[in-house]
């Protein structure tokens, strides 16, 4: 109940934030722009629309997850609004969970709107819509969940600016972890262990990327999807627990 109230309050805060609408409009414009770009390209129209559409949804969603996510906690501390929450009979982890769920709800609804835009474009261009498209959208949302948890974790102990830098870095590295491992295998001794350690510790965000499957119409078996989903949720749970432990010990000066 308390968690849900905080979640809905966060959702309402997001809804009244202009940043969100700007990003959303941009995303829809990008998706729409594929119609114009199509006229400049020879062949492969379908692939182009899907590529730009999914790419935009992913890109703008991640932007929202990072730039709203880093403010979730640090803004509350900066504006001292947290004083009125923590002094009520609300446990600190409940506060964190509420903030997290609130932004997650925002992201899900945002993705749904962007996806509706993409589907409309596909429908009017007579592009066949396959089930794998929805699977890819699901995985994109899952990636947002992980990125939001990363942003939330950083925002529990550092300022908004630092959190943004850390989270962006994690996002970029998260898409390159396979390279980290490959690079490590070419090294020996300590360097190899360090890089392999990083490979296992950092989120492997590329696992959530099914855009290639969509453009090439390669379906993904349900078993694989479940594995990816389990990985994403476990990783998110781990991040949220870590954030709670750090947050529990903080003094709000």
């Amino acid at each position: 109940m308390k968690v849900l109230s905080i979640a809905f309050n966060t959702f309402r805060e997001n809804l009244r934030d202009k940043l969100l609408y700007n990003l959303l409009i941009f995303a829809l414009l990008m998706i729409g722009s594929s119609l114009v770009l199509m006229r400049l390209t020879l062949g492969e129209f379908h692939r182009l629309i899907l590529d730009i559409g999914l790419g935009s949804i992913n890109f703008f969603g991640v932007l929202i997850a990072i730039f709203v996510g880093i403010g979730l906690v640090s803004k509350e501390i900066e504006k001292k609004t947290i004083y009125t929450i923590v002094s009520k009979p609300v446990a600190r982890y409940q506060f964190l969970l509420g903030k997290y769920l609130g932004l997650s709800l925002t992201l899900v609804i945002n993705t749904a709107i962007m996806a509706a835009g993409l589907l409309a474009v596909l429908y009017f261009q007579d592009v066949p819509i396959h089930a794998v498209l929805f699977k890819a959208l699901g995985m994109i949302v899952l990636e947002f969940m992980v990125v939001t948890a990363v942003a939330l974790l950083f925002s529990t102990f550092s300022s908004a600016t630092l959190s943004a830098i850390f989270t962006l870095a994690m996002y970029v590295i998260g898409h390159l972890t396979t390279d980290l491992k490959a690079f490590g295998q070419k090294m020996e001794g300590v360097g190899r262990s360090v890089l392999e350690g990083m490979y296992y510790l950092l989120p492997n965000l590329d696992r959530f990327n099914l855009k290639g499957n969509v453009t090439h119409q390669l379906d993904v078996p349900v078993g694989d999807l479940l594995m990816i989903a389990a990985y994403g949720m476990a990783y998110t749970a781990f991040l949220l627990m870590l954030a709670s432990v750090i947050f529990q010990r903080r003094d709000f000066r």
């Binding site: 109230s5 309050n9 805060e13 001292k80």
Partner: peptide, 22 residues
């Protein structure tokens, strides 16, 4: 709290309702 800052996007009623829920 001292010089309080509140959720300024809320109306008075929404604001009090939120704290009531807590």
């Amino acid at each position: 709290p001292e010089s309080p800052y509140f959720y300024d996007y809320l109306t008075s009623r929404e604001f009090l309702r939120f704290y009531g829920h807590l």
